[in-house]
């Protein structure tokens, strides 16, 4: 269910190599390339898969960081996925404006 877009920052001269690896990952689509930044839209079946895919993007060779900038999830049954400990003690503002 989750649809997420991830901005992937590549090491210098590695953009091509990263693209090649992303093409081999399922449920991903490169929608924009801006210098050494890629915008990757992911479409997975669960929160868990969504998180795993962001991790996988970050672990690719030549990737400096992979930051999700937009995510949409419509399956309430799965919950928003905040760890219980953090939910008790977080003091910063809620996610939504």
């Amino acid at each position: 269910m989750p649809i997420t877009s991830v901005v992937v920052e590549c090491q210098q001269d590695q953009t091509h190599e990263v693209r090649r690896q992303v093409d081999n990952l399922p449920n991903t689509e490169i929608t924009k390339i801006e210098g050494d930044l890629l915008v990757v839209v992911t479409d997975t079946d669960s929160q868990k898969q969504d998180h795993a895919l962001v991790r996988a993007l970050a672990d690719l060779t030549g990737v400096i960081s992979a930051v999700p900038v937009f995510t949409n999830c419509e399956d309430l049954a799965e919950g928003i996925g905040i760890a219980p400990a953090l939910a008790e003690h977080e003091t910063h503002a809620p996610m939504e404006v």
Partner: peptide, 8 residues
């Protein structure tokens, strides 16, 4: 439905 805009 949760729409999270991460820049905010």
């Amino acid at each position: 439905m949760y729409l999270i805009k991460w820049t905010w």
